[in-house]
């Protein structure tokens, strides 16, 4: 039940096994999230949501996917072939890879082997997170650019601009956490929240991170990447079939990862409040529950808020979030050092 020391790793078969399991869970969360969102949106809008395919519409995601991959594949004349095909893959892989960083619990003793409940616990986990999520913007940019269509292109440019704009605030918002925890390892950060979740001292940082994450994963009110009203479907205009499905998968993985990451960073990960210390096997459940909570919140926001205008989006990112995040970092630094002395 101890934290894995740096450089510790299990036997290779255990590593392989847990990777498979986590991948399985992660990937199966995609249809779940899909269904959950549609159901929940339906409820918010006072309608039942999908309810035809399978019991309570539970097979709806499977049907969707099946439909998509049985469509004709085409690409516009002006498209750059290999990039056009590669771009959705990048998007999906980058999203899925982020999932590998999330720690689901303390190191457990499973049949006599210490097993870390994560795919990879890097001492630079946070940096990896940023690196991998930035990769996602390549998917957007390349997809839109290689389509050879002006809607796609404009959507891609806007999308890329939006993604990178909010990425700065996202990074700055986490500085407070890094300072407090003194580490970039995600599991150490979680461990550090044993007494108090970071959402309490870092409420400003948490809010900024949350908002920036919404923009990063292209959710309402910041879903300007698709921008149905002006740019048809943004960078995805020319996509259909399996390729579109990949973008779709990427988007929902992002949603889940966003929830998981927020709970890891601000909601104490597997820690429970009020000194409740359940046995180790509960840890993943706690994490998943918190993730579900955040996902619900994001869906709730989608149901309630209108889309912002693009210029509003940019100025909000640059003129509000960025200075706020910077100040947050500064204030945190001052408090931390003064308290330490």
């Amino acid at each position: 039940m101890t934290l894995a020391t740096v450089g510790y790793f299990e036997p290779w078969y255990v590593q392989l096994l847990k990777t498979l399991i986590i991948f399985g869970i992660g990937f199966s969360l995609v249809p779940l999230a899909l269904l959950y969102e549609r159901k929940l949106l339906g409820r918010f809008q006072n309608r039942p949501g999908p309810n035809r395919v399978g019991p309570f519409g539970s097979m709806q995601p499977a049907a969707d996917i099946l439909k998509l991959i049985s469509k004709e594949q085409f690409q516009p004349r002006g498209a750059i072939g290999w990039l056009f095909k590669l771009a959705p893959l990048i998007s999906a892989v980058a999203a899925l890879a982020t999932f590998a960083l999330i720690p689901f619990g303390r190191t457990q003793d499973v049949f006599g082997t210490d097993v870390g409940l994560y795919v990879a616990d890097s001492n630079i986990g946070l940096l990896l997170f940023f690196a991998l999520s930035s990769l996602g913007s390549y998917g957007v940019l390349l997809g839109g650019w290689s389509s050879g269509s002006k809607y796609s292109f404009l959507g891609a440019m806007r999308g890329a601009a939006q993604l990178i704009s909010y990425e700065i605030s996202q990074g700055l918002a986490l500085l407070g956490i890094v300072m407090t925890a003194g580490s970039l390892s995600l599991s150490e950060i979680v461990e550090h929240q044993n007494g108090m979740w970071f959402i309490v001292p870092q409420i400003v940082g948490g809010l900024i991170f949350f908002v920036a994450t919404l923009a990063e994963i292209n959710r309402t009110p910041f879903d300007l990447l698709e921008a149905d009203s002006e740019l048809v479907a943004g960078f995805m205009t020319e996509y259909g079939g399996g390729r579109f499905a990949l973008y779709f998968v990427g988007e929902y993985v992002h949603l889940v990862v966003a929830g998981a990451m927020f709970s890891t960073l601000f909601l104490g990960g597997w820690n429970l409040p009020f000194g409740i210390d359940p046995p180790g096997w509960v840890d993943p459940i706690v994490v998943l529950a918190k993730t579900g909570l955040i996902v619900s919140l994001i869906i709730w926001i989608r149901a309630s808020l209108p889309k912002v205008r693009y210029d509003q989006l940019m100025s909000f990112g640059w003129k509000v979030l960025l200075p706020l995040a910077t100040l947050n970092a500064l204030v945190t630094a001052i408090i931390l050092v003064t308290l330490a002395d």
Binding site: L96, A120, S122, G242, L246
Partner: peptide, 20 residues
């Protein structure tokens, strides 16, 4: 310690490729 991450990447690429 990055081996699982690599496996993970391969898996996700595989799934992506499967779609295509």
């Amino acid at each position: 310690s990055y081996l699982p991450l690599l496996v993970f990447l391969v898996l996700s690429t595989g799934v992506g490729a499967f779609f295509l």
